[in-house]
Design a binder for these strands. Structure first.
Lengths: 200, 200
DNA sequence: GTCTATACAGCGATAGAC
DNA sequence: GTCTATCGCTGTATAGAC
């Protein structure tokens, strides 16, 4: 690991632990045993470290996407991919838990994050539409409710790291992956509901 | 409004607007036209201002509670009381949006907030139990799912101010009061579902 | 209660030597 | 690439006069 990578790794660790507003370039530097001047050689300022970490998050999320279109709608696949995404988010949790602080410093991150979520919303809508087509969802679900389900989904994936503090379940990625699925249960046909419950 | 109240009002305004980490005692003082020294006469430090504001939130939430037990389970009452609670939360939004920052500075607030939510969970469970007793909920809802609904409720009320940023609906208290109710819809009997939808 | 003045610490960032 | 040294600024908090 070169110095630049060390800075990013330690920065991530400290931001997650102590919060963006409490971590200084001095802390990061001293923790990995380099001088503050050296750190500033690699990153001109703190914001650039945060930005690089955010790029790391985006990269990992992109890398985790599945594209084998045949399998992409299978519930087991969706759940598994959800868990993986949640684990990635968890490792960059300061970007979500301290999102307001980060956004105030770097409005560009806010824009990208919202764009990402907008895209996720489209993806989930197409998955739900697929389930409706295959008769997995109840017949009496209106489009309004489908849209509401998509909103619920965005709500969950954007805020589960915040909510986990209140719910006292810890940052359990798999708990909230299951949680996301459980929100859909009452919309399923009775038959499918049983199958899904067995999976969860 | 005396000086102490002015400090609190301006503090709330600035914390909501610029974030706890960016607002200084100097800002608050100069904004209301007093000296920083004077401010520190009334509040020894920034944390005490935050603490006093948190007490204000708790006080307002307590004052908004209904106790006329006959009406307390009517869905219209519950929705209305939800909206009022959400409006109060919205006026103290920095305590929720920047909850991590606040909690790091004042761990005592974290404890009280979690205790508050735990109590809300009990309240909502008793409301749901009442609905189950009256046959408003579907018969086939298991206890696990009831507990899940309560968790969903806590998730929503704790994190809606965070999520509203991602969902792009603004901090609309009434939107999320309705949102909370809509989560229950698929658990209702068909008959009740229609009545509820008319209300929302 | 309110003011001015000031002490003090910590942060971000840069300069210049090696 | 890495170091030491240092500047300028901002934030919290206190002292002492009115």
């Amino acid at each position: 690991m070169n110095t630049k990578e060390k800075i990013l790794a330690e920065g991530l660790k400290l931001f997650n632990k102590d919060g963006v507003e409490n971590v200084t370039t001095r802390h990061i530097a001293s923790e990995i045993g380099i001088s503050q001047g050296n750190l500033h050689y690699h990153f001109p300022n703190k914001n650039e470290i945060i930005l690089a970490l955010f790029d790391g998050l985006m990269e990992q999320l992109m890398a985790a996407r599945r594209h084998n279109s045949a399998e992409v709608f299978r519930k087991e696949e969706v759940l598994e991919s959800m868990k993986q995404n949640f684990l990635i988010m968890q490792s960059y949790r300061f970007l979500f838990k301290d999102n307001e602080v980060v956004w105030r410093r770097l409005p560009a991150i806010r824009k990208k994050m919202i764009a990402l979520l907008d895209q996720k919303k489209l993806e989930i809508k197409s998955i739900i539409a697929e389930y409706v087509r295959h008769g997995i969802f109840r017949e009496d679900i209106s489009q309004v409710q489908i849209d509401f389900l998509a909103d619920q989904f965005i709500f969950t994936i954007s805020s589960w790291l915040t909510a986990s503090e209140y719910l006292g379940v810890g940052n359990k990625a798999s708990y909230f992956a299951v949680y996301t699925f459980r929100q859909w249960l009452p919309y399923l046909t009775q038959d499918e509901m049983k199958k899904w419950e067995e999976m969860l």
